[in-house]
Every structure is written in C-alpha cells, then in structure tokens.
Simulated assay, not measured.
Amino acid sequence: MILTLVPDIRDIPPSRWDALSAQAGLYLSHRWLAAQQRDPTARVHYALVQDDGHLVAAAPLYVVDTEPNDLYRVHELLPGRAPARTLLAGARRGYVNAPLLHPRLTPARRREALGRLVTAAATLATAEKAVPWWLYVTDEAAAELADACGTKPVQLNQDARIPLPGTTFDDYLAALPSKRRVTIRRERRAFAEAGYERRTLRLSECADTAGALAAQLQARHGHPADPAVMAAILRDQAEGMADSGVVHAAFTSRHMVAFSLAYHHAGTVWLRSTGYDYARLRGAHEYFNLVYYLPIEDAYTHGATALHLGMESLRAKVLRGATASPLWAVEGG
C-alpha cells in the first residue's frame, strides 16, 4: 500500500473519493470537504492510501491555526487537557467523523490501510508540533480506530437520526407509540392552521435572511452571533455546495420568520441549520415542523430512508423516533 498527501481535494476525482465516503455521511463527502477547504483557520492535507492503483483509504488532515468553534477545541471538550496545537483528522465540521476505508478490504488489509492513515496523521502532527485527534468518531469506527492508535476512546456526545420506514409520512407515524402519534398530529395541525405561507427555496435565494434568523437562534441559546457573519457563512455554503441545499421556510406576509436547511446525501436528509424570528412566531410548534416534519415529508418525496439530526436536544429527537449512537474522541497516537 502506498500513502500520499494531496493538498487540494479538487485534484482527487469525486467518484473515487465518494466511493469511500458514501456511507460515512455528508460531512466527509467530496463536495462538502471542497466547500470547507477555503476556511482560512486551518491548512488541510488529504491522506490517500492506494493499493495496486485503487484508492482504498483516505482522510483529511487539518492543521488548525485558529479554532473558532469551541466544540472542536480539545482542551474545552476533555477535562484536564492543556491548550495545544491540534491536528484534526477526518471531518472538521458537522460532528460526524470516521476514517474512510474501502468496504471490500479484508480484515488484515483494512487494519493495514487504517494504520497508514494513523501514521500519516501522527507524522504530520509531529512535523507541525501538534497533537493529532479524531473528533466525533462514530460508534462503529471508534474501537477500531482506538486500537490502531493505541489509545482509549472518550465519549463526547451522541448522534441522532430518525429511520424512515415505508414510503409515506403515515408510515413514519405508524412506527411511533400511539400517544406520540397524537402529539405529532396536533403539532402539524397547529402549524397548518397558523396561516404561514410555506415555501421551498434554494439557499442562495435567502442566505441573508436565514443568517439573521440563525443568529437569533444562537443568541437565544446563549451564543451571541453576528447576523452578517452568519449570512456570509450561508452564502459561502451555497456557493461551495453548488446551491444543493433545501430550505423549508415559513412566511408571514413578506417576512420569512422560520427556516430549516438540509442536504440530501446517500439516501439520507442531513439537517444542517435552522433559525427563527421569535417576535413574529405564532406559537404553532414552528421548530418541530421546520426541523422534523417538513424535512421528513421531503425525505419521503425523494426516497430517502433517514433524517440525520446530529447532537443536542436528544430527548426531543428520541420522542420523535430518533435512535442515538455515541460519538467519540480518539487521540491519534
């Protein structure tokens, strides 16, 4: 097996990369990583492991110069860790991560390929005087990666997704307990009767307004955010993701008062962002409709089989049918 480092993911054919990343999720896809590559707060290299000319393993390696997101600062995530320069292996945004390994590798070849990725991360970290970490690693990959690194995984949080059986929203409801079905029907009815105009938009059509609403949500939860900065992030995301996001929006007259942003990837709808104009909401369970029910309807329309919801607010997610799995931190050796 041959290990190489490539500085630009655009030099790697998307089909070759996504043959490895399809099951790992949106945040390790070629398109998402290419969009994140312009982030000036880190320098990225892509570790590629090839066997007889075939790409069999890969991982982005981020040398972090400045980390604006406290949920990716290791010393704030793990008690007792002193601030140190960090090399983040794998996805740096999105809170879902795993080393990319070809599914057809034999167990022995899989261990060898993973070992090459771990060595690449450790070697680059040493050269950069950094500590290598894999953050938010999925439950399936954590033990395997920890064994390769010779360290113990530490649980950070839990990831949530709603499996979507059948082909319609009624099939989703049928899988829930009867009391929960009654609650969801009531929440959907209240939203329908609130008089909102529902629109489905491209992100490029509403990035500025969505950024302002997302900033209101952040402020409400104790994380002050500049609406202009949030809007710029969404504009960049629209450009980097070829405007492939789906925005579900609720309007009152000329005002967009609530939205959610999601992406379709590999049979799953990935919820990415949401926001609200709290002064104009009508108390009609807007959050649950924008974050759960409208994306679920959209998922069924496009044949998706799951809605990925990510971390936080786990109880509300489980009550609406989500399954949770641990997310881990693994020191990279």
Rank of each mutant, 00 (worst) to 15 (best):
L3V: 02
L3K: 04
T4G: 00
P7S: 05
I9M: 13
R10Q: 07
D11N: 08
S15E: 15
R16C: 02
R16G: 01
D18T: 08
A19G: 12
A19H: 06
Q23C: 10
A34P: 04
Q37C: 10
D39C: 12
T41C: 11
H45L: 15
A47T: 06
A47Q: 07
D51Y: 04
A59D: 09
A59C: 13
V64S: 04
T66E: 13
V74P: 02
V74G: 00
L78G: 01
A82K: 12
R85K: 14
A91S: 11
R93F: 14
G94N: 09
G94A: 10
N97M: 07
P99A: 02
L100R: 04
L105P: 06
A108N: 00
R111K: 06
R116W: 07
A120L: 03
A121D: 03
L124H: 02
W133E: 00
W134C: 06
L135W: 01
D139V: 14
E140M: 08
A143Q: 14
A146P: 07
D147S: 08
A148R: 15
P153N: 02
N157Y: 10
D159A: 12
A160C: 15
L164D: 09
G166D: 08
T168W: 09
T168L: 11
L173F: 10
R181C: 03
T183Y: 07
I184T: 00
Y196W: 11
T200L: 15
S204A: 09
A215M: 06
A215S: 06
A215V: 04
Q216A: 10
G222F: 10
G222Q: 06
D226M: 10
D226I: 09
D226H: 03
A228P: 04
V229T: 13
V229M: 06
A231V: 09
A232Q: 12
I233E: 14
V246E: 00
H255D: 15
A258H: 09
A266C: 10
G267S: 05
G267H: 12
L271A: 07
G275E: 04
L281E: 00
L281Q: 03
H285A: 14
H285D: 10
F288Y: 05
F288H: 09
L290D: 10
P295G: 03
E297W: 04
D298E: 15
Y300R: 04
H302G: 07
T305R: 15
E312A: 08
S313R: 12
L314H: 12
A316C: 06
V318P: 01
V318S: 05
T323S: 00
